[in-house]
Simulated assay, not measured.
Amino acid sequence: MMRSWLPLILVILLISAGLWFSESPPEQFLGKRPTPQQQNRAADLVIKGAETRHFDQAGNLAYRVDAEQITYFQFKRRDRANLKEPRMLFYTDDQPKWATRSKRGVAFNRGERIVLSGDVQIDELPGPNGIQLETPRITIFPDREFAETDKVVTISSGPNRTEGTGMRAYLKENRMEILSDVKSSYDTQ
């Protein structure tokens, strides 16, 4: 008698499972990624007044990142940290060499790539006669001390000023390349 009910119970379970999956399928079965709105709803960590230090292979301070607030998100294959008013300081031989500041930033994959936006300013230290760079948005690769943008960039040093579109900055080498539409003005005195 029990053997005759077993196939019927299995059929009912399979139909129930099929109906359940069709009404509310798990996201991983659909191959969908969460939308930016869904990602922003589930911060894993929020830090106010954050100060981080990053060291090179030899144990020397390479750069630091400070922010009014860091909102951290961990996803299956990557992570992201939204930065409010981030400031970065790059060091050479334990001395500060370049300082950045902006209104916003986003760090990807444990800070491997940082995108700064909103009145980005990068200053050569010690100031005030060093190079100053301004742009609306820039991507920085801190471990390589490299930055790039496709936006308008203004580089000034004292009264001298150069403006153009797109830039590559090799911070460790103190070298910057403006890629197009270059205009310069120099004070000869």
Rank of each mutant, 00 (worst) to 15 (best):
A50R: 06
A50S: 11
E51F: 11
E51L: 07
E51A: 10
T52K: 11
T52L: 11
R53I: 00
H54V: 04
H54P: 05
F55T: 08
F55V: 08
F55I: 06
Q57P: 09
Q57I: 09
Q57A: 15
Q57V: 13
Q57E: 15
G59M: 05
G59P: 06
N60D: 13
N60T: 08
L61W: 10
L61A: 12
A62L: 11
A62S: 15
A62K: 08
A62D: 14
A62M: 11
Y63H: 09
Y63I: 01
Y63A: 01
Y63T: 03
R64C: 00
R64E: 08
V65Q: 00
V65L: 11
D66G: 10
D66R: 14
D66I: 12
D66Y: 04
A67H: 01
A67T: 11
A67L: 03
A67W: 07
E68A: 15
E68H: 13
I70R: 09
I70G: 02
I70W: 05
I70S: 09
T71Q: 06
T71A: 09
Y72N: 09
Y72H: 15
Y72V: 05
F73I: 07
F73P: 02
F73H: 10
Q74K: 14
Q74A: 14
Q74T: 14
F75Q: 12
F75N: 13
F75V: 03
K76W: 05
K76P: 02
K76L: 10
K76E: 13
R77H: 14
R78C: 04
R78Y: 12
R78W: 10
R78K: 13
D79W: 05
D79S: 10
D79H: 06
D79R: 08
D79E: 05
R80V: 07
R80K: 14
A81H: 00
A81Y: 03
A81K: 06
N82C: 00
N82W: 04
N82G: 03
N82D: 15
L83D: 03
L83W: 02
L83Y: 00
L83I: 04
L83F: 04
K84A: 13
K84G: 01
K84Q: 08
E85Q: 15
E85C: 00
E85M: 12
P86M: 01
L89C: 01
